[in-house]
Amino acid sequence: MNHHAMTKHFILAAPLLLLAACNNAVSADNPGEPPLAGAKIGGPFELTSSSGETVKWSDFQGKYRMVYFGYAYCPDVCPLDVQRMMKAYAEFAKAEPEMAKQLQPIFITVDPERDTPKVVGEFTHAFSDDLLGLTGTPEQIKKAARAFSVYYAKGAVREDGSYLMDHSRGAYLMGRDGEPIALLPVDESPEAVTAELKKWVR
Rank of each mutant, 00 (worst) to 15 (best):
A25Y: 14
T54H: 03
E159L: 01
S50R: 03
K8P: 03
E196G: 02
V77E: 01
A14M: 15
G70N: 05
G133W: 04
P185A: 07
A88P: 04
T194M: 05
V67C: 10
E96D: 11
S51H: 05
T137H: 02
E191I: 04
G133E: 01
L164W: 08
I108F: 00
G178A: 10
V82P: 01
S128N: 03
L132S: 06
M85E: 03
E159C: 05
M6R: 07
G32H: 05
F127L: 00
E179G: 12
M174N: 11
P79A: 02
A72Q: 02
A195F: 07
F92M: 08
G70D: 01
G42N: 14
G38M: 06
Y152L: 11
G175A: 13
K101M: 12
V193R: 11
A171M: 11
E191K: 12
G175R: 14
F92Y: 15
Q61H: 10
M174D: 06
G170H: 15
G136E: 01
G175K: 14
E46K: 12
A13V: 15
A20D: 14
Y71S: 10
H3I: 11
Y64N: 13
P97N: 13
R114Q: 04
D129Y: 04
P138W: 05
L16Y: 13
E159I: 07
R202C: 03
M86Y: 02
D129E: 14
T54A: 09
K40F: 05
L12P: 04
H9F: 15
E53F: 10
T48H: 04
A72Y: 00
R65C: 15
D115Q: 03
Y68R: 07
A100N: 11
M99E: 15
F92A: 07
S162L: 10
K40P: 02
I181Y: 09
E33P: 06
K56F: 07
D76Y: 10
Y71V: 09
A5T: 13
D177Q: 12
A100D: 14
F127Q: 00
D76I: 09
M86D: 00
P180G: 07
N24G: 13
L197D: 10
K154E: 07
D187G: 01
M1R: 11
C22Y: 12
F69L: 03
E122M: 02
L184F: 12
G52R: 06
P112E: 01
A39D: 08
E33Y: 07
H9V: 11
M85D: 02
G170C: 09
K8D: 12
V193I: 04
A21R: 15
E191C: 09
G42S: 11
S50H: 02
L12D: 15
D111V: 09
A14Y: 14
D59W: 05
F107Y: 13
L184D: 03
V120S: 02
D76F: 08
D166K: 11
F148C: 03
S128G: 01
P117N: 03
E91T: 00
G62W: 11
L103Q: 13
F107D: 07
C74N: 04
W57H: 05
L19M: 15
A147K: 05
V110A: 02
E159W: 04
A72I: 06
A171W: 06
V186Q: 07
V110L: 02
